[in-house]
Computed example of a mutant assay.
Amino acid sequence: MTSKRERIQAALTGQTVDRVPVGFWRHWPGDDQNPDSLAAVTLAYQRKYDLDFIKLPVSSTYCVEDYGITHAYRGSIMGDREYLSRIIHCPDDWAAVGPLDIRRGTYGWHLDSLGKIVKEKDQDTPVIVTMFHPLAIAAYLAGDELFLAHLREYPEKVLPALHTLAETSARFASACIEAGADGIFLSTRFASHELLSRDEFDQFGRPTDLMVLEAASAGWFNVLHLHGQHPMFKETAAYPVQAVNWHDRTSGIDLQTAARLSPKAVMGGVEQMRLLQDGSPREVMDQAREAIQKMNSRRLILTTGCTYPLAVPEANLMAMRRAVENAIG
């Protein structure tokens, strides 16, 4: 009998699988603010759907809370927390962005939560930890508009802070692997033509991304998530990861195109904002099986393009999970 670990490893390397691996994820507002409840909902979720991997479902605030930002859940349909205050207001504020001790504070309790999950999960079920690349972390500290303005007008002030954020992230990535994670899920929101030019990304984004990925290199299941409708897919194709996840159903880069652009395994196949939320179980299953057939069941992990809304019906999640059973590639 093929284990989940073996199934994922086969998919990552393009080998024949007994069935395509499957996974999906959501936010857990409230429960994502405590190590015990975060571990509990994460484990219960995986067991309920019998998913092939666990993705630790963190809030974006976890990587900046210890700098003093404030936040609250205000009813977001995605389960995201709202930023109530930032710490960057003028260019000189970037000098206050120092290194964090990843064993203490919010980083520290996320390591505690990961430890609980690793201890209590089925040992054959891989677990990956969601991280946000340094550009996104910097934007959480300032807000997108101010961050981009400072990055372009005062790069000499922002770049040292980006490097510091990358060093902290790299230490956290390494600590996650040491704690038993099989890899990280690096969300690169600014690797997008909507936000940066290629030259800007090469200057500000790529070097710090690679610092974090190098720190996670002992993991065997590292995933690059490209957020947005115009992802820098070609520009990040050589990133040292085993799989790539993006909005494949809406961005114009479908699974087959991606498979030609990159030797990595692809993670996608089901559109989460409209189809998974508003479609019927039959439509969800049909789209999932279409993806499996187009990829001939190779180099594919069936997932959504990103986090799905909290209002997605249970029947649609079950349909996505069942789609991999007896699917013909």
Score class of each variant (00 low, 15 high):
T2G: 11
S3E: 09
R5A: 14
E6M: 09
I8W: 03
I8D: 06
T13R: 15
T13N: 15
R19N: 08
R19V: 06
P21W: 03
F24W: 12
G30M: 01
N34C: 02
N34W: 01
A40I: 00
A40T: 02
R47D: 10
Y49E: 07
F53P: 12
I54E: 08
I54D: 07
V58A: 11
G68K: 10
T70Y: 13
R74N: 11
R74E: 14
S76C: 10
I77R: 15
M78R: 13
M78C: 08
G79W: 01
R81S: 08
R81P: 04
E82D: 12
S85W: 08
S85N: 12
S85L: 09
H89G: 11
C90T: 15
A96P: 06
P99V: 05
D101A: 12
I102G: 00
G105E: 00
W109T: 04
W109V: 03
D112R: 06
L114W: 01
G115W: 06
K116C: 01
K119S: 12
K121G: 06
T125V: 12
F132E: 02
H133P: 09
I137K: 04
L141M: 09
D144H: 11
E145Y: 11
E145H: 11
L146V: 11
F147T: 03
H150L: 06
E153Y: 15
E156I: 03
V158W: 00
P160E: 00
A161F: 00
A161L: 02
H163C: 03
A173N: 07
S174P: 11
S174T: 15
G180E: 08
I184L: 06
F185N: 03
F185M: 08
A191I: 02
H193N: 11
H193A: 15
E194L: 10
D199L: 10
D199T: 10
E200K: 01
D202M: 11
F204W: 01
F204G: 00
L210C: 00
L210G: 00
M211Q: 08
A215H: 08
N222V: 03
G228N: 04
Q229N: 15
Q229G: 14
A237Y: 02
Y239G: 01
P240V: 03
V244G: 09
N245P: 12
W246H: 05
G252Q: 07
L255W: 03
R260S: 12
S262R: 04
P263H: 15
K264H: 12
M267L: 14
E271D: 10
Q272D: 14
Q277M: 13
Q277N: 15
D278S: 15
E283P: 04
Q287S: 14
R289Q: 14
T303W: 10
C306M: 11
P309E: 09
P309D: 11
P309L: 05
P313G: 05
E314G: 10
A319Y: 04
M320A: 12
R321A: 09
R322S: 14
A323E: 08
V324A: 07
N326F: 14
A327S: 15
